[in-house]
Design a protein around this nucleic acid. Structure first.
Lengths: 150, 150
DNA sequence: CCGTTTCCGTTGGCTCCACCAACGTTGGCG
DNA sequence: CGCCAACGTTGGTGGAGCCAACGGAAACGG
């Protein structure tokens, strides 16, 4: 048993974009598993979080806040409303808009998802010291901010 | 023009997993655009890179090296072979296997993709100083290594 | 030696996330 | 008023990561 390591090409492992996307796969899997155990996905969490933090909002607003396409917001809200986690009512002051509100059940679900995500977070950062976690967060935040403008 | 910033929820922006996956979206888009201009996608690059670095390999080997599912390797190699970038021949010493070889055209394509990816890389890391790039790479590598064992 | 287990390639299917185009409705503005 | 912009909705695309199942082929164990 020579082990035959089967390493992945240096061309890949050397590129930050590879590291980033591969690690994102793990991050996504961890978060997804946590969400899945509560019967939700990423899109649902994003919307619930936005509603909790900023209150009632139109679907378009939610899309902009959560970095989601309008059409995906529609689908996600259909599902959330179907579970009674969210209410969709026409805006009397602008009949183009729908006002989306967080229900009490939605708030409870959000808290469950928060717990699940926190666990995923711990597992993701696993071996990193607090100092390293902070450095990583800083660098990622900096880069993300840059790419959201340009 | 009040700008109406429409910030994204702190619940999201505070989590490394959010930063990671969102930034990965940008990274993926940059790389994908580059690849697309040469008529390829990520899976193609991975396989060409593995072949160049380690030489002839079976499909299963390629899958393990590039972190791809066997079935996805099949599809990617169909496409690469269709473009003459790769050759698939049965292994005379193990009739279960196919041996995949990089052609001269494949090698040229790989170099084109390398250039495209290097540009994407530059754009991705944009505002980061060399020191920060190094730190980021180190942290990501460390985390990725951890998650590929467990 | 034969049966079981493992490996390989292939087909077909699924989910999530990110997008895009088009349409009808509605508001706002020149 | 007429035009344009915004909104919600429908329907569709594509990449990437998976999983289940199959038949053929090799390896292994009794």
């Amino acid at each position: 048993m020579v082990a035959d390591v089967e390493k992945t090409p240096a061309r890949l492992t050397a590129k930050p974009s590879w590291l980033l996307t591969q690690l994102a796969v793990h991050a996504h899997r961890l978060a997804s598993d946590g969400f899945g155990q509560v019967g939700a996905r990423g899109y649902h969490y994003r919307i619930l979080a936005a509603l909790e933090e900023f209150g009632v909002a139109s679907q378009a607003e939610l899309g902009r806040r959560c970095n989601m396409d309008r059409s995906d917001v529609v689908a996600a809200i259909n599902e959330l409303a179907g579970q009674g986690l969210v209410e969709r009512t026409p805006d009397p002051e602008d009949r183009r808009r729908n006002l989306v509100t967080l229900t009490a059940a939605g708030d409870r679900q959000l808290r469950r998802l928060d717990r699940a995500l926190d666990e995923a977070q711990e597992e993701l950062l696993g071996p990193l010291a607090a100092e390293d976690r902070q450095a990583l967060t800083r660098l990622l935040t900096q880069l993300l901010a840059h790419h959201q403008r340009g």
